[in-house]
Design a protein around this nucleic acid. Sequence first.
DNA 1: CAGTGGTCTAGACCACACC
DNA 2: GTGTGGTCTAGACCACTGT
Lengths: 254, 254
Amino acid sequence: MTMSHVGELMPDVRLDRGSPVPLYFQLALQLEQAIEDGRLAEATQWANEMTIADQLRLSRPTVRQAMQHLVDRGLIVRRRGIGTRVVASHVRRRVQLSSLYADLDRAGQRPSTAVLSLRQVDGPSDVRAALAVAQDEQIWEVVRIRSANDRPIAHLTNYLIATGLELTAGQLQSGSLYGVMAKAGLDIHSGVQTIGARNASAEEAKLLAAKRGEAMLTVERTVFDDSGRALELGRHLYVANRYAFTMNLPPALP
Amino acid sequence: MTMSHVGELMPDVRLDRGSPVPLYFQLALQLEQAIEDGRLAEATQWANEMTIADQLRLSRPTVRQAMQHLVDRGLIVRRRGIGTRVVASHVRRRVQLSSLYADLDRAGQRPSTAVLSLRQVDGPSDVRAALAVAQDEQIWEVVRIRSANDRPIAHLTNYLIATGLELTAGQLQSGSLYGVMAKAGLDIHSGVQTIGARNASAEEAKLLAAKRGEAMLTVERTVFDDSGRALELGRHLYVANRYAFTMNLPPALP
DNA sequence: CAGTGGTCTAGACCACACC
DNA sequence: GTGTGGTCTAGACCACTGT
C-alpha cells in the first residue's frame, strides 16, 4: 500500500494503490467529499491537472477521468484557458430513481407502511401490456398506504413481474420496494414517469383521511432493467397538501 | 460461434478529420443516430473497441470516449468480458431543463402564448430571497397564459433578475423564456423544482377556463448559472386534466 | 483458453482566455 | 506571450466472462 498527498490548493488526498477501487475513483470520491465538507470552497481556483497529477504521482488522463466524474455530476465547472472551480451548493444530487420511503427517511419523518393487499393477479390490461407479460403469466399486485408520523400520505399500487420474485408483507413493511427488488436480482437501469393531478374520489379521500375532491398528485412510473425488460409499474396517489416532489435538474448534456 | 464480418456490426461511420468537431463526438453522434434509426438493433452484439478503432483509424481511448458518452446517456450497456449492446428503446432523452413550449411543439400541439403582464417589480419577499437580489434591485415579473390549440393549459408567473436583461412581449410570444435568456448570455447550468398540486381558486379557474376546485398541478422551479447565481424563478399552474409531466429517469450513477 | 471492456501511463498538439 | 483544459495517440496490464 502506497500513499501520496498534496497540500496547497487541493485537499488531502490519499490514494491506496493496492486497493481494488480504481485510482480515478478514489480521487473522485475524495474530491467529492471535500466539496461536501466545504474544504474546497466554491470560489477558489483549483490546482491544474498537471500539478495534481504530479503531486499524486498519477498520469494526466487518470486525473481527468476523476474530474470528468465530478463534471458529470454537476459539482465542478471547467473552462479551457480559465481553470476549474466548484459550482454553488444548491444542487448536489442528480435526479434519480428515488423511493418515497428514502425521501421521508431523509427528512426524519418516521415513515411507516401498511400493506393493504399482496397477491398475484392478472391485473389491468394496460398494465399487462406495459409490463409485456405473457398471456398466462400472473403478476404481483401490491397495495400499500404510506404514512409519516402516523398520518397517511400516499396510496401506492404497484405491479411487478412475478418471475423469480418472492414477496412477503414483512419485507415491504420494513423496506422499500426497490430494495426488495434489488435483493431478488432485479436491477433497475432506468425508467419513465408521468406526474399529474386529479381530484380525490370519495373512496380515496376516506383511505387517506382527506376531503372528497381534494387535489391529489398522481404518479405513474415504469422501471426497466438494462435489457429493456419492464420490471415494475407503480400507480401512486399522494395527498398534495402533505407531499410534493422536489427534484434537482442536472446540467444539460452537450 | 465464430467471427462474422465486422463491417456488419457497425453502421457506416464517416469521420471528418478537418472538422472542428472532435472525432469522439462525431463518432458518438453517428452511433446515437444509428441507434435512433434502428440501424443498430437492441439485441445485437457490437464489434469490440479494437476493431472499431482499427476500422476508423482511431486510437482506442478515442473510441472509448465516444462510447462512454452513450453509456452516460443510457443508450448502451457495456460489460467486461461480454461486450457492448444497445439498451431498449424505452428511454432516450435524459431528464433535463425542458420548457413547456418545446414539449408542446414536439407533440405538434400548436402552442401559443399570451403575455398578460411584463414589468419590473419588487416582487414577493420569498422570491427576492430565492433570487438573492440586492435591496434596491428590481426584478422582472412575467405573467403569461400558455395554450395549445387555443385552449388554455397553464398560467405562468416568472421572476427574472433584471441585471443586463431586456425583455419585450414580442420575444416572449414567439419563443421560450429560456431561449430569450440564452440570447442575453444567461446560461443555465442546473436547477431545482418542486411539483405539487392544489385546487383551483375561482380566479385561477376563470383564467384557465376550468372549474373552481379543479385539481391543478403546481411547479416551482429555480434555475442557476454555473457560478450558483439564481437566474430565474417560475411559479406555474397547469390544468391537470390537460397536461402532465412525463420525464425519463436516467440510469443511476455509481 | 481467448476475448471483452476497465484501468493506467507518457507523451503530443491544439483552442482558448488572460496578461 | 503563458497557462489552462480539450483532444488524440500508442502502447501496457488487469479483471471478468464464456469456452
